[in-house]
Amino acid sequence: MSLFLGQILPYIAAVVFISGVTWRIWRWMIPRIVHNITLSPFPGSWSKAIVWILWQFATFWNLLKFDRPLWLGAWFMHIALFLMLGGHVMAFYTVGLQFHVMAPGIITAEMSLAMSDWIGTILGLIFLVALLYLLGRRLANEQVRAISSSSDYLHLFLLIGIATVGNIMRLFPEYHLGYAPVREYLAGLFLFNPVPLPDHSLFLIKYTLVMILMIIFPFSKLMHSFGFFWERWIVNRPYTEPARGLPGARLQLHK
């Protein structure tokens, strides 16, 4: 079992995730953008369009403007998720010294470890609270409930499960697992040089849930993270107005 979870499933999950996402995007690229259906006011150039798209991406501007209660849950959930994903990569790679590595003259190794702990813990809590808020909204808001399917709830449950286990490991020292043993295990995976899984049941649960998430990701609405750019690419594109003025008229714009 631990051979399967530790040495086989991770590769399956990685392959399914990467090839699945690639396949989905490949399929999006087959149909054409037939007509220019950009939303006005039009950006004057591609660089302006890209700035607008990134602004939407970073701030969830439309939700902020049109649905503030949803923005509150959605933006905090996503921002916590992004920072934590980055945090996981950095912290496991540098064994918690990421801030020290980034600013060695200012931040000592101990400070970096403390920061990693504190920031990670706070983000983890924000993430969980925001997820619960979004679940509550989906259940309480009649309109949202009307358009939801079982999978919409299951995605939330899965994320809530991951967040809960993660928070328990953070908050209760007896369930804590340091960076070093995980790093060692992951290094083994990446270098195809198997290292046994850390013997830690909560880690095992969380790790398995994450692999499940990776496997369902390409076959679910979670693809919206990429879909955002493909959709915005269609509806936020430059348009140039034709010149004004009536040829042959007695009154001309330019004298």
């Binding site: 953008i33 037939v34 309109q143 919409d152 879909g227």
Partner: peptide, 16 residues
Amino acid sequence: VRSFVMAMETCVKCGA
């Protein structure tokens, strides 16, 4: 038609 495919595959049912 890509705009059709993206409408089919991107919605997260947020209800906004």
